[in-house]
Amino acid sequence: MKKLLLGMALCLISFQLHASEARYSSWSDPNKEVSQNTDALKNMIRELNDLVNEAEQARAADPRFLQDLKNLTNRYGQTTVPRVALQDDFADGNFTENPVWQVVSGKYWIEKGYGLRSFVDGSSTTSNAESSSARKVSKEELLIGVLGAVLGGKTQSQPQEQTQDTSVVSVAEIYTDQAISNSFEIDMDMSSWVAAGHLEFGPYQGTNRQTGYRLVYQGGQSPALQLVRHYSNSAAVVARYDTLKLEDQKNHKLVWKRGSGGRITVRVDDTVVIDVNDHSFKDDFTGFILTNKKGDFTVKSISILNAQ
């Protein structure tokens, strides 16, 4: 028995020595292999989703088979863990850092207990330049002007009345530069306090912030919600939802998702209001923009998750 135990101990020691030699003989970064495999899986799922969508539009295969493929890619596509691109509940009372929001026009402020707020009344008045050019010239001013020209400019007219610039800002716009993947999830708690409001928001590409998706909410109108595809010089409506009313002075939960296959869904308070496929933008987005064109809106919190 002792010889047997000794033999087993020697075998165990020999095995450990060989394992140690094998362990330290060569080294490769396992994270690199996992990352490469994950990227390959993502690319395969993205390409397969594109093929399924094309086959669906061309009616090139049995719809049940295409649905099975969609379910398969969705199941494996959801194994990737989203990472936070942006998260802000404005509880610190400051929107100028962590993350940094930049106001382009209008006024934004933190309403304690409510979040990021902006108000635009939507009215317009004549600007100072327009009122100056449209102001009629009196006969006295014309006579003084003629005399001044005859006398070589020695005669001066009476001081003109200074008109005050009563123009108002027609848009309140704010944005934040944050890297947002092509597939994303935007969760936003918001409230609307004035009827017939007009709010636009979404991810953008490039430094001019013109290219990207916009969700356009117009209270009291039909359609009340539109998904718009924006380019620098053009725009097109991708989907619409006719009836939606948020002017009850309560927070509403909006969840906007875009999958790797181009499927876009928008839920408002657990109700799906938009479900559409769009493959317009292939590159990642560079930031998020919020534009109040009319109304009194408050964003209590917002988070953006990168899905890849």
Score class of each variant (00 low, 15 high):
Ala129Cys: 01
Asp92Thr: 10
Thr291Phe: 00
Asn94Glu: 09
Arg64Cys: 05
Glu56Leu: 11
Phe90Asp: 01
Phe95Ser: 06
Thr176Cys: 10
Thr271Asp: 05
Ala172Thr: 06
Pro203Thr: 06
Asp88Gln: 08
Ser35Trp: 11
Leu305His: 13
Ala235Phe: 05
Val146Asp: 03
Gly148Pro: 03
Cys11Ser: 11
Leu305Gln: 15
Ala129Ile: 14
Ile264Asn: 06
Arg267Trp: 11
Glu111Asp: 15
Gly220Asn: 05
Asn31Pro: 00
Tyr114Gln: 13
Asn251His: 07
Val194Ser: 11
Ser127Val: 02
Asn74Ser: 13
Ser28Met: 04
Leu4Trp: 09
Glu140Ser: 13
Gln16Val: 15
Asn71Val: 04
Ile274Asn: 04
Leu69His: 03
Asn74Lys: 07
Val81Asn: 12
Gln218Gly: 02
Ser25Met: 04
Gly212Pro: 05
Val216Phe: 00
Leu225Trp: 00
Ser132Ile: 10
Asn292Ser: 06
Ser105Met: 08
Val34Ala: 15
Ser260Arg: 10
Glu54Asn: 13
Val104Lys: 09
Ala224Gly: 11
Gly148His: 00
Gln308Arg: 12
Ala195Ile: 04
His230Glu: 07
Ser181Ile: 00
Phe65Leu: 15
Lys70Leu: 12
Thr243Gly: 05
Thr271Gly: 02
Tyr24Cys: 10
Thr80Ser: 09
Trp27Gln: 05
Gly197Ser: 14
Gln57Pro: 00
Gly295Glu: 01
Ala58Gln: 14
Arg83Ala: 04
Asn94Cys: 03
Asp284Tyr: 07
Thr265Pro: 02
Ser138Val: 02
Glu47Tyr: 13
Ile274Gln: 02
His252Ile: 10
Ile274Glu: 03
Asn233Gly: 00
Ile264Ala: 04
Ser35Val: 06
Phe285Glu: 02
Asn306Glu: 06
Phe281Tyr: 14
Leu246Ser: 05
Gln205Met: 15
Glu47Pro: 02
Arg209His: 01
Lys253Cys: 08
Ile304Val: 15
Arg75Cys: 02
Gln156Thr: 08
Asp248Ile: 06
Val194Cys: 03
Lys250Gln: 15
Ser127Thr: 15
